[in-house]
Write a protein that binds this DNA or RNA. Structure first.
Lengths: 166, 166
DNA sequence: TATTAGTTTCAATTTCTACTGAAATTACGC
DNA sequence: GCGTAATTTCAGTAGAAATTGAAACTAATA
């Protein structure tokens, strides 16, 4: 397979993966493009490669920066901004986990805490209480497991971890 | 908080959580509704509670059954079908992991295998090869970790697991 | 085997999300 | 501080995804 074809397939797959995990296609594709680029790219490069509008490119680049997946790079003497992706995959994974944990898991845990206050002795409220308690337990465990993961280093994950749980 | 308010908030939160993870809101809400229901519900019950159309209810109930999160229940002497959710949270989590692993992680790994065949000695193709290799490594690890998780039992996850990785 | 309660399907429609493009704003280099 | 290249914003729009509703289908029972 040649590089051009590989590149296209990768942009396509990464975009599709993003979509099915609630990350918009363009954001995922810009990320993919920067990941495989050996040099920093300007907004115009991104616009050209992906055939998207300036507004779209700008918004998604900013979102990627928020997520900690992309950095702005300023070249001396150049007026325009360049962008580079974080290339260390372990850092990429940690950023994604951190973001989603904060934006989805933690709010869910807070909601469950509130919901735990539902009282009553009907079968309905008893079943409700049971379900909330169970979900709460698993979410909390997931939360602390991810917290540990995010603080760990890559070698630990890739090496030791697998041996331990096997 | 009373049961009615709790129920509404739970349906709402579970639906929102689903949306941000690429699962449609209605599917998540039907799941939530069945989870907290102490008895099996008919399609009409679901339609009534969530104010959705028959077609929508049917399609999403079927999808939930595909995912292994809901079972059909036939009551003797009753012509209509009833539905119950899998109540064991550990089973719920395993079903979700299994589904998404199969539908997203595994195709991604297959795609990466193909992409690993990109040749060339330009900086572009070398960077490409490096990125693909890294992603492949992490995906494979994630895949086998999840495989192990899915085969494990709940106590192991909740109990031992946490101690081991801490 | 005719009736009908119940389920499934899917074209049309609605709703929601992402994207565009141009105007407004910013800030670099002179 | 001026001119301008570059970035940002956002109302309008396009496109995707979810939903409806009615017709087609299925199967239980009389």
């Amino acid at each position: 397979m040649d590089i051009q074809e590989g590149k296209e397939k990768f942009l396509q797959s990464w975009g599709a993966l993003g979509s099915s995990w609630g990350i918009n296609r363009t954001m995922a594709q810009i990320h993919a493009l920067l990941l495989i680029s050996p040099r920093a790219l300007s907004a115009d490069d991104v616009i050209g490669e992906l055939q998207i509008s300036r507004g779209n490119a700008n918004m998604n680049l900013r979102a990627l920066i928020d997520w900690g997946l992309v950095y702005k790079e300023l070249k001396p003497g150049e007026r325009k901004e360049f962008f580079v992706a974080e290339k260390d995959m372990w850092e990429v994974i940690k950023s994604i986990i951190t973001q989603r944990k904060k934006k989805e898991l933690e709010p869910m845990i807070r909601a469950l805490d509130e919901l735990a206050s539902v009282e009553g002795h009907t079968p309905e409220s008893e079943e409700f209480a049971r379900v909330i308690k169970d979900i709460k337990m698993f979410s909390s465990k997931a939360d602390s497991t991810l917290e540990t993961l995010v603080k760990a280093d890559s070698n630990w994950f890739i090496g030791t971890f697998m041996k331990m749980i096997k």
